[in-house]
Amino acid sequence: MLPVEMAVNGERRRGVVEPRLTLADYLREHCALTGTHLGCEHGVCGACTVLLDGEAVRACLMFAVQAEGGDVTTIEGLGGPDGALSTVQDAFREEHGLQCGFCTPGFVVSVTALLRENPQPTEIEIREALSGNLCRCTGYQGIISAVERAAGAAQ
């Protein structure tokens, strides 16, 4: 067992974990932040995407001990402190960018990272950026529209 300390959504978290515990499992089971979903647990579906030091990464492909000293943001950390939705979350709601919601945290985190780096992406850029997130419900069109709406709203 190893001690680990990181910031999660701005809060210091200390834990003692097995090295093989993934960051995703740490967030879900030790921090009770179950918004980070686990679909495939081998890097393909994107449901577990979180921000580590501002960059979108797969939480299922990192061990919690590797995030030592890092700054993690999960879906729970994207809205306002009063529970207000972020621009991206709001756009997903407006455009019906979600149905069952299983994939949604991963999409919202990925889109948040995309728009920070590229605030006005073209449709092709949006589609390429979202290629790493799978959705079994929406058919993606609503999600693409949500990204366009969020980019427009931020303008």
């Binding site: 890097g43 994107g46 995407t49 990464v57 797969r58 990925s110 990272a113 950026a129 290629s131 790493g132």
Partner: peptide, 12 residues
């Protein structure tokens, strides 16, 4: 580089 996986993969 952009042909490798997805940006979340290339970040790590």
């Amino acid at each position: 580089t952009p042909l490798i996986g997805h940006f979340q993969i290339r970040n790590r």
